[in-house]
Design a binder for these strands. Structure first.
Lengths: 183, 183
DNA sequence: CGACACATGTAACACGTTACATGATTTG
DNA sequence: CAAATCATGTAACGTGTTACATGTGTCG
């Protein structure tokens, strides 16, 4: 559900051909996300099927134009806050949750490993960010996003470790003895 | 690619039936992610097709067991750091990138709106986190993750706004005049 | 008995992705 | 002219998701 809106956003600036949309999409995302041309057309077909775009062949070319319904949907998109319910499944989170299920020691191992790997990755990303301080705004924003995301993941890993250690610590009265009991 | 590994992780503790896996998956994720039972079976079919699990009917029941290949894949999963290439398309990031394409003013509007909405969401999440300080470790970790994620998004929005304002500011020598020029 | 949970599936669809087929136009 | 780019698609596959069809067992 991201290609759709991206194409609509591009079309809200004026009708374009399918192939142009691929190019525009990639340049808008700073080259971070390439689209297979075929996907553009299949997505456009679906958008047309849903009445969000219409084909305009008034001049010999085949141009896609956004419809009123498309504009409405897009208007909502700008305002909508990306918070699906249920939230998208985050791989790191899932990994730790299932590691805990296998045993807290295992989970702590995984956390340690992930943290060091993530730290390395973050350094790389920061380095890349400094190196490529060319004027490409989009690419910079993508890099920022990746870095911030990695920092957040690291912070979460720390939180996670804290909770695990506290849960294991026999000093503390366990908040609940048998929530995970195997039937 | 998250249900597969989750089921494998559960099976690495011992063979189970399909329906039990649904229950285990949901309890492991603190109820944050429910699975349709049908999906468990289709996923198991695919895992079996790929030789990662095998069906065991030695006792009258139909149990799925992880295979050696499955264990190998799982071993890699624990260590693998969730950093796909290209990175997963982040909706907030996409939204801002396409908003910029429509015009920096528009982008600043969207940023402002997203920030206030996200701030509200974050407060809700924090409140929810405090309220439900029951002993459910998994649910707490999910809530932590959501909160940390929201904080990171807010921080990124600030970064983003900064870059945009700097790019628009005529005092600064624009790093590049025509990278976004409409041909 | 009737409701509910357990248990196993099938069918249909959405979206994303890759590979492939085809033709027109441009340009070195 | 040959190669590259522009342009439009189709086919096939993978995962995720929902809805539906069925049957068994348990318990109030």
């Amino acid at each position: 559900m991201a290609v759709r809106e991206g194409l609509l956003a591009l079309l809200s600036d004026g009708a374009r051909q399918g192939h142009q949309l691929k190019t525009a999409f990639e340049s808008t995302t700073g080259g971070a996300w390439n689209l297979n041309v075929g996907q553009v057309y299949t997505t456009l077909d679906r958008l047309e099927r849903d009445g969000l775009v219409a084909v305009d062949t008034s001049d010999g070319n085949k141009r896609y134009a956004i419809t009123t319904a498309g504009r409405e949907l897009l208007g909502g998109w700008w305002e909508a806050i990306p918070a699906e319910d249920p939230p998208p499944r985050d791989e790191l989170l899932l990994k730790i949750l299932f590691a805990i299920e296998r045993g807290p020691e295992h989970a702590l191992d995984v956390i340690t490993h992930q943290r060091s790997a993530l730290t390395r990755l973050l350094q790389d990303r920061r380095r890349a960010l400094r190196a490529r301080s060319d004027g490409d705004l989009a690419a910079s924003l993508v890099a920022d996003s990746l870095a911030v995301r990695a920092e957040a993941d690291l912070r979460w890993l720390d939180l996670c470790e804290g909770r695990l250690l506290r849960a294991d610590d026999p000093n503390r009265p366990a908040t609940d003895g048998g929530s995970r009991g195997p039937r």
